Computed example of a mutant assay.
Amino acid sequence: MTKQATRRRGDDLVRSIHEAVLAELAEVGLGRLTMEGIARRARTAKTSLYRRWASPHDVLLDAIHDEHPQEVPSPSADDLRGDLIRALRQLVEWTRSPTAAAAAAILGERKRYPELAAALYERVFDARGGRFTLTVLRYYAARGHLDPALITPVVADIGEALVLKHSLDADAPPSDEQLAAIVDQAILPAVGRGPQRAAR
């Protein structure tokens, strides 16, 4: 078997294990997640898991990290409004995924598993550049288009908080028009930009 084929086989195994841990979590919950259950669902030996991960929670964090979306702002940094809307749309799409459900399960039990919740931020959210709109805002600030002092923790959370509030209140994610309203009426004013000045 060639090195490329071996690597591909290894990638396929990791992918199947990631799918298995997410499915197992959805069925049994965080407290009953075990290496045995993940291995059985992935149809692989438990030793295969222990070669790479120390615990079922490590497998879970790796699966969430692997599928967590990465925001890619416009290379020329000339469409702040559009990049913010796309970041929120990416958040909405992610909330429908198994990895979002897994992240919610961890945060929902943060009192029982505080170290796991902390690791979710450290190994997934922060490792992937932070939250959705925060990545965009930092990108523009680094290129001199925004005052970094305006990107406070509150401002960093505005877009995501409003998306989640709408989803809870309406029992449905915001539409594209509503995402644009969040950007125009909340995020841009918070960083000193109106829609007419949002291109730079």
Results as ranks from 00 to 15, higher is better:
159 G>C: 06
135 T>F: 01
79 D>G: 05
44 T>W: 08
65 H>E: 15
49 L>A: 11
95 T>P: 01
38 I>H: 07
58 D>T: 08
50 Y>G: 09
56 P>H: 09
137 L>H: 06
97 S>T: 15
27 E>Q: 15
143 R>W: 07
36 E>Y: 13
123 R>M: 04
59 V>E: 09
123 R>S: 10
45 A>M: 06
43 R>A: 14
163 V>C: 07
141 A>Q: 09
49 L>V: 10
152 T>A: 13
195 P>Y: 01
156 A>W: 05
26 A>G: 12
23 A>C: 01
84 L>F: 01
64 I>K: 08
146 L>Q: 11
42 A>F: 03
93 E>T: 05
160 E>P: 01
117 A>H: 04
8 R>S: 14
153 P>D: 08
189 P>K: 02
116 L>Q: 08
71 E>W: 01
175 S>D: 02
151 I>F: 10
45 A>F: 06
146 L>Y: 09
173 P>N: 02
103 A>R: 15
81 R>W: 01
164 L>P: 01
4 Q>G: 09
116 L>H: 07
30 L>D: 12
114 P>D: 07
64 I>V: 15
80 L>D: 04
57 H>Q: 14
64 I>R: 08
108 G>T: 09
49 L>T: 12
78 D>F: 02
8 R>N: 13
28 V>D: 06
121 Y>A: 09
73 P>R: 05
195 P>C: 00
12 D>Q: 13
144 G>V: 08
122 E>I: 04
130 G>R: 04
79 D>Y: 00
23 A>P: 02
16 S>R: 14
63 A>C: 07
118 A>N: 14
43 R>P: 04
39 A>I: 10
180 A>E: 14
181 A>G: 02
60 L>R: 09
68 H>E: 03
106 I>F: 06
142 A>Q: 14
62 D>T: 12
25 L>Y: 07
179 L>T: 00
93 E>Q: 04
16 S>G: 09
166 H>L: 07
51 R>H: 14
141 A>L: 09
9 R>M: 07
92 V>C: 05
150 L>D: 15
12 D>G: 10
104 A>G: 10
128 R>N: 13
10 G>N: 15
132 F>S: 15
152 T>G: 13
16 S>Y: 02
190 A>L: 02
58 D>F: 06
127 A>T: 02
17 I>K: 05
63 A>M: 07
46 K>S: 11
66 D>G: 13
122 E>V: 10
36 E>H: 13
145 H>L: 12
106 I>M: 06
29 G>K: 10
20 A>I: 07
77 A>E: 04
199 A>F: 03
26 A>H: 10
7 R>S: 13
200 R>W: 03
91 L>M: 06
174 P>C: 01
171 D>N: 11
